[in-house]
């Protein structure tokens, strides 16, 4: 019997992966993050409140999983090359995404932004979440969301106008 959360998860996979790519910029690592986040979500399925946004709940789990991953890497004292590690599930390689990045001026500009600006940009302008929803996912005050977002967008306009 398919459960509601299972169906929601499958439907959300493309967007989860897209957000994971914004976070880590590595296709193989992104796939790993998504897989790990899904595992966490299923293990804690009871903590999702039906009627609230499932996507926002998943984005938060995914991002927390990413932060844990960074902490673990730091704790292990390893500056692992993100493109070579954790190839658990068949790695299609970096080619497709990188070539798209090269092709796209905007994408390159986005990619040059600091991580804290990239993720808020992705959530608000890419995923159409409100400032408040983004603040809850990122666990920062709404004012922080706004200042990071404004800086990211000004920079984006500057970079693309100069191109």
């Amino acid at each position: 019997m398919p459960t509601a959360i299972g169906q929601e998860l499958v439907a959300l996979l493309p967007r989860l992966r897209r957000f994971a790519l914004v976070l880590c910029r590595s296709q193989s690592l992104a796939d790993d993050l998504v897989q790990g986040a899904c595992e966490r979500a299923l293990a804690n399925a009871d903590s999702w409140t039906p009627g609230t946004r499932f996507d926002a709940w998943m984005f938060r789990i995914l991002r927390n999983h990413w932060i844990d991953h960074l902490r673990r890497m730091r704790a292990e004292g390893m500056a692992e090359d993100v493109t070579t590690q954790t190839q658990l599930i068949g790695d299609p390689g970096e080619g497709p995404i990188l070539s798209r990045l090269v092709l796209s001026e905007v994408q390159r500009a986005i990619d040059s932004l600091p991580q804290d600006q990239r993720e808020v940009l992705a959530l608000v302008c890419g995923e159409d979440l409100t400032y408040r929803e983004a603040a809850e996912i990122l666990n920062v005050p709404i004012g922080t969301v706004m200042s990071r977002l404004a800086r990211a967008r000004k920079r984006l306009v500057e970079l693309t106008a100069a191109a």
């Binding site: 798209r100 796209s104 302008c125 890419g126 995923e127 990211a152 967008r153 000004k154 984006l156």
Partner: peptide
């Protein structure tokens, strides 16, 4: 900038 991000996001990524 919102439009730019949106188009980059829904296309390439």
């Amino acid at each position: 900038s919102r439009r730019l991000m949106r188009s980059a996001f829904s296309g390439a990524l």
